[in-house]
């Protein structure tokens, strides 16, 4: 009995053990390397993907638990208008240093943009709380979120 997951708009038949955390199915089987392995403990946010439009950590929960859900990885974010706006805003704000946290943050910011209204700085900070950035690019990331969520 094989597992099928809907990822970036396509149905993908998964060969890995369904108990494998989603992140390893994405990276190792499907070669979608955008989501990062940072802790494997749901503590750092580097592995975030969109699941039914919500930023969701993928490094612990088994792939099987995502059956029937709409998964969008950072590679698929550009197919969403809000996602493209977020990507452009990150580029405009130079919102990265080493960039290891960036894909998780782009995903989280896209989830915020999908809410469809301007997001205050305090709301953005709260929403990004699960995401660590060790280089200190936070101010630029917050600026990018502001740009992406304020322009329709």
């Amino acid at each position: 009995m094989s597992l099928t997951l809907r990822i970036n708009g396509e149905d993908c038949v998964i060969a890995s053990d369904p108990e494998t955390p989603l992140l390893f199915v994405l990276r190792d089987e499907l070669k979608l390397k955008g989501a990062k392995l940072g802790c494997g403990l749901e503590q750092c946010g580097a592995c975030a993907v969109l699941v039914d439009g919500e930023a969701t950590l993928s490094c612990v929960a088994p792939a099987a638990t995502f059956e029937g859900r709409e998964i969008v990885t950072v590679e698929g974010v550009a197919d969403i208008a809000e996602g493209r706006r977020v990507q452009d805003a990150f580029v405009a704000a130079n919102a990265a240093q080493c960039g290891y946290c960036t894909s998780g943050l782009v995903v989280a910011a896209t989830a915020l943009a999908l809410v469809g209204r301007p997001v205050s700085r305090e709301e953005a900070k709260a929403a990004l709380e699960p995401h660590l950035c060790r280089c200190g690019a936070h101010p630029r990331v917050l600026e990018a979120v502001e740009i992406a969520t304020s322009t329709p």
Partner: peptide, 20 residues
């Protein structure tokens, strides 16, 4: 322009960890 930023936001930038 920050080198690699466009690839980073698209998830196509490759870190050592992504080698395959």
């Amino acid at each position: 322009p920050m080198r690699g930023l466009t690839e980073l936001v698209r998830g196509t930038y490759r870190f050592l960890h992504d080698l395959d």
